[in-house]
Design a protein around this nucleic acid. Sequence first.
DNA 1: CCCTGATTCGC
DNA 2: GCGAATCAGG
Length: 231
Amino acid sequence: MAMEWTEETITRLRELWQQGLSTAEIGRQLEVTKNAVVGKAHRLGLQARPSPIRRPAASARSTVKAPATPAESIPAPAQEMTAPSVSIPAASVAPAGMPPATTQPPQPVAEVRPVAATPAEVARPVVAAPVPPAPPVVAPPVAAPRAEAPVTPPADEEAVPAARPEVRVPLRAVAPPAPRRSGLTCCWPLGDPGTPGFHFCGATPVPGKPYCVEHAQLAYVKLRDRRDNVA
DNA sequence: CCCTGATTCGC
DNA sequence: GCGAATCAGG
């Protein structure tokens, strides 16, 4: 079954591409390989992003890569490391995506959004603010836990408020809770961000996790339990 | 090793 | 047109 780039997937590709996501990341979301993404992107004529490598217009790459093509090679802009602006003429897009930082840390702003990429997820009305006001209680930001739904733990109407944060394999790729030992306190949000009573749990977290034992259970849902909410 | 994106070329 | 294979830099 050959992947059939539908209008929709192409549109999504365009969007994600423009958001500055890596080809691999886009591939994950579209469920195709990064090669497919890159290939398609080029065929679509999408703006090439700063390539990590230089391509001396290789010719026959059969057995051996083409020896240096005498050609004038390249004017060589000589842009050390990963210069962000490159091919794009100044202003234009500048998605604020990749600062001069290395490409390694998966941190384009866009990384935040992908979480809601799954069809089932788009329906969810996003209410909670992405970043709760830092309470004076706990230490530093502790990488503000992605306040998804857990903002209302007990409630009386929400059946399983906590089961929400586990949308789709959040364990990798997207945004690991970043267990900074900046205080060793559970950063599970309690109460409504913005209201006076809001605070973080503060209990001793499970080693390697940002939450205490109880909240870790809420935060990390078993795959079995969510088998029916997927596409 | 991992990651990245670009190109080539068989299909 | 598609994308695996390959290349190549960080």
